[in-house]
């Protein structure tokens, strides 16, 4: 299993071949509070990098989740519709949001490593 990469919008990305799995970071899940609803993109949807891909809601906040990389959605985590609490319980595992087929692998260069992201969060 490849290691995680991160964005400054608090998404994590796991790249496997020409696909990437995307979710929100543990830090983001804690900031939001109890997640009560997740709106996911439909498979087949084409997204440019930084386009709105999903929405995650807690009781008092709603936040957009952006596509960290350009590509086409191949799957969304339907389990979150029934049990959005998974995002809090296991944000970087079972709480994944969607998988995207990458349009341009070069875009992955701009993502942060785990250490870089930890530093980034410290600075907030």
């Amino acid at each position: 299993m490849s290691e995680l990469r991160f964005t400054n919008q608090h998404e994590w990305v796991r790249i496997e071949g020409d696909e990437a799995t995307v979710g929100i970071t543990k830090y983001a899940a804690e900031q939001l509070g109890d997640v009560v609803f997740v709106e996911l993109p439909e498979a087949g949807k084409k997204l440019a990098r930084d386009a709105e891909a999903a929405v995650v809601e807690s009781v008092k906040a709603a936040s957009e989740v952006y596509a960290p990389l350009s590509g086409e959605i191949v799957a969304a985590n339907a389990a979150l519709s029934d049990d959005p609490a998974k995002v809090n319980a296991d944000p970087e595992g079972e709480g994944w949001f969607f998988r995207i087929k990458l349009a341009d692998k070069a875009e992955t260069e701009g993502l942060m490593t785990a250490d870089q992201y930890t530093e980034f969060v410290k600075g907030l």
Binding site: F37, E57, S58, V59, K60, A61, A62
Partner: peptide, 12 residues
């Protein structure tokens, strides 16, 4: 379900 509403969602 207040996240549908203006005081949280503003222009959305």
């Amino acid at each position: 379900l207040s996240t549908r509403e203006q005081h949280i969602r503003r222009e959305k």
